[in-house]
Design a protein around this nucleic acid. Structure first.
Lengths: 142, 142
DNA sequence: ATCGCAAGTGCAACTGATTTGCAAATACCT
DNA sequence: AGGTATTTGCAAATCAGTTGCACTTGCGAT
């Protein structure tokens, strides 16, 4: 539930997560989970592909794996724009993200709270909001 | 400055906007502005391409036009994820957007206000935020 | 009004991210 | 260990968006 650095996750634990989600435990899936687990911020599909290809995993396998994970809710898929999808393990909990439109840096805003309130009452009706994304310039780029 | 339905914008007015931005007044640009003007919500590049191609405008021209408009700040480019860019005339003013991850519907949240506040004070440092995007399920899809 | 040329356009070919079809490989239940 | 439904790797396809280039056109100067 909390943010972790880069400690590895044990194979049996990964296996459990997969089996619980109804997925077979395969090397590609284990590698993908380890990859995501090791990163403090969401990774783009491209970054994950780059990380796993050297180990011999095909990019199509990686993309398929990420889709499966998303369906099974093992990971949460963020649409941060810029034609790229990002993924993070869903057990880190829901939080907003900030993306710098200049350098592309992504920050997880677990330390921020949001208040979203209708101003007039004509009330556009949103259903449920489960992703909050802020874009702008990070301190460095500003 | 306010939201409009689908009334057309006069040619001289479009011409003015373009000249003020330092752009020549060409049929493709006029068509693109009219297209954006007629829509109550941001349009994706694909939608604009589809709208203008039947009239004989090439998609590369449309993409180029949209980039120029973005540079000149005539339009604001939104990165709503889903591998697609959306555009709206910048004179509608800054406001947040909601996008349904199921049906893709986009809502402009000009009637909402946002409060974003650091919870702890360890303070992740954001620079300036100029786009707020919420994703989730709209009322219909929920 | 019309001329000249920089700016804008259409076309076709290219890129980069992602997807798909299919045959070979493999996880895992018995 | 064995059989089979699931996964995987590969190559080819797709899709949004971009680019190079020769042709056209808007518009300030004549």
């Amino acid at each position: 539930m909390t943010k972790r650095k880069s400690a590895a996750i044990s194979l049996p634990e990964v296996r459990n997560r997969l089996r619980e989600a109804g997925l077979r435990c395969t090397p590609a899936r284990v590698a993908a989970i380890n990859c995501l687990f090791a990163s403090p911020t969401p990774l783009s599909s491209g970054e994950i592909v780059e990380a796993l290809e050297p180990a011999g995993f095909d990019k199509s396998t990686v993309y398929r794996t990420l889709s499966e994970f998303t369906e099974c809710k093992i990971v949460f898929r963020l649409d941060l724009g810029d034609s790229m999808r990002h993924y993070e393990l869903s057990d880190v909990g829901t939080h907003a993200h900030f993306k710098c439109r200049q350098c592309g840096e992504i920050q997880c805003l677990d330390d921020f709270s949001f208040e979203i309130s209708p101003r007039k009452h004509k009330a556009v009706r949103l259903g449920s909001v489960n992703e909050v994304l802020l874009r702008g310039l990070c301190e460095a780029c500003e």
